[in-house]
Amino acid sequence: MRRTGRSAGLLGAAAMVMSVAACTADSGGGGAEASCATLYTYQDRSYQDVANVKFTLGKKLGVATQPASCEDTGGHDESEPVMTETAYEVDGISPKVAIAIGDTPKTATFFAVHSGPELPPEVQKLIDGS
């Protein structure tokens, strides 16, 4: 392979790594990482998934949406479809704070409002088991 071909290949690989890295952010709440794939919007609020939360599923709320690609990487294409999942209430917590999202109640995962490095106190209480 010629030197220019190798350089172009390395630049392309570096660009791909940077795109993926730009889509990942440390949530700061419990050390869990969030990526664009784990961000959803429901009723104009952004939610990110939170691991290790024991919760009881409530009633079906409606539809949560997930962007087709990361907005912050410059790769967003308006023609790409937005992904949707069912949003469910979490017993004992307002949907303004947390919801569960999944195709079915059995596959629903816990999501909390994405608003900075700290988890809402109601969510932290569930994690701590208090």
Rank of each mutant, 00 (worst) to 15 (best):
Q124H: 01
G31D: 03
A22L: 14
A68D: 06
T73A: 12
L11H: 07
T38H: 12
Q48Y: 01
A34C: 14
V82W: 02
T4Q: 13
S7R: 15
Y88P: 11
E33F: 13
L126N: 02
K106P: 01
P117R: 05
S35P: 05
A14Y: 06
L10P: 00
K59M: 06
V63I: 10
A98E: 05
I101W: 00
V17I: 15
A15S: 14
T38A: 10
I101E: 01
S130H: 10
A51N: 11
S27I: 05
V82M: 08
D91M: 12
K54M: 03
V53H: 07
S69D: 15
E33P: 03
T56I: 05
E122I: 09
V123N: 08
A68M: 05
D103Q: 06
A108G: 07
T107C: 03
D72T: 14
T24K: 05
D26K: 07
V17M: 14
G129D: 07
A112R: 01
R3C: 08
T104M: 01
Y88W: 15
V63H: 00
E118L: 13
I99Q: 02
R2G: 10
V113S: 00
D103L: 03
L57N: 05
G58F: 02
V50W: 02
D128F: 06
P105E: 00
I99A: 01
Q66G: 05
K59P: 03
A13G: 11
G29Q: 04
G92V: 08
E78G: 02
R3H: 10
G30N: 08
G31S: 06
